[in-house]
Amino acid sequence: MKYALYPGCTVLGRGRNYEMAARQVARVLGIEFVDLDDFECCGFPIKSVHYETFMMMGARNIFAAEQKELDICTLCSACTGSLTEVNKHLIEHFDEKTRIVSTLKKNGINYRMGRNIAVKHFAKILYEDVGINEIQKLIRKRLSNLNIAAHYGCHYLKPTDIYKNPEDPENPHTLDELISVTGANSINYSEKLSCCGAGVLAISEDLAYSIARPKFQELSGNSTDAMVLICPFCSVMYDDNQKKIEKKFGEKYNLPVLYYPQLLGLALGIDAKLLGLRMNRVSTRALLEKIGA
């Protein structure tokens, strides 16, 4: 299994722990990552401003992977959505692909027309390409005393019509199964499918924080040990901004927020330090003590 690793902006800027854990886990599971030096922003931030620019930015990243004949592995769900949407458009509209390749060429950005590739989120690669059974065989430390709240986020699931094997967005299961294979208990909770609010963070912090709040209110009142997520944008809301949200509403949550590869890494027996677990904003110390890591 070989993929071009597409880190995106937010992982490089604010999610070093995610990148560390993903690379560690990939190594143990036999997934090879190739780093391309011509990846830039996926275009997501520009979609609402100027669609043509968004399309060109996404397409150019896809062309970069096509030159190497590699499928793309994404870590950020917003990148996943954007690149999947653009890729689908290019695959279904050969004339558009030709047009964008030649427009880029006229402006000195040279990519030849390549064979179509696929864009896949790391969690989907773990679930579909590695598989729960294979992961099961490599588990060295069952995390059976942990109660974990899965946070799917929006773009990993939706819009369903861009994805090849979409899950039911009202009743998804892949992240729950990936959590369960570590031995941890993936809890059911009513705010499970809520949006983190990051999409409006740049426009209104108050609004974004109000959207993130209900998940904290529900999870801080039960026996949840951590929230587990798969998108750096969601992590900015729930981990980086948790203190600010506590302050705004005069509440206390103290809820550790882990990236899924960090949780899986612990179960695979990888050292917590190598998984970047000291870099999570909300302390993971109590959680690590609980599992004896």
């Binding site: 880190p7 490089l12 070093r16 990148e19 560390m20 690379r23 780093d35 030096d37 011509d38 830039e40 922003c41 520009i46 401003v49 100027h50 043509e52 620019t53 060109m56 930015m57 150019r60 427009t103 880029l104 402006n107 000195g108 950005i109 190598l274």
Partner: peptide, 21 residues
């Protein structure tokens, strides 16, 4: 233990100029 991230090569800037953003 993470690999070096090369400076972006200006593709995004170029595209924004092309589309006159």
């Amino acid at each position: 233990g993470l690999p070096k991230v090369e400076k972006a090569r200006g593709f995004t800037k170029k595209i924004m100029e092309m589309t006159e953003l």
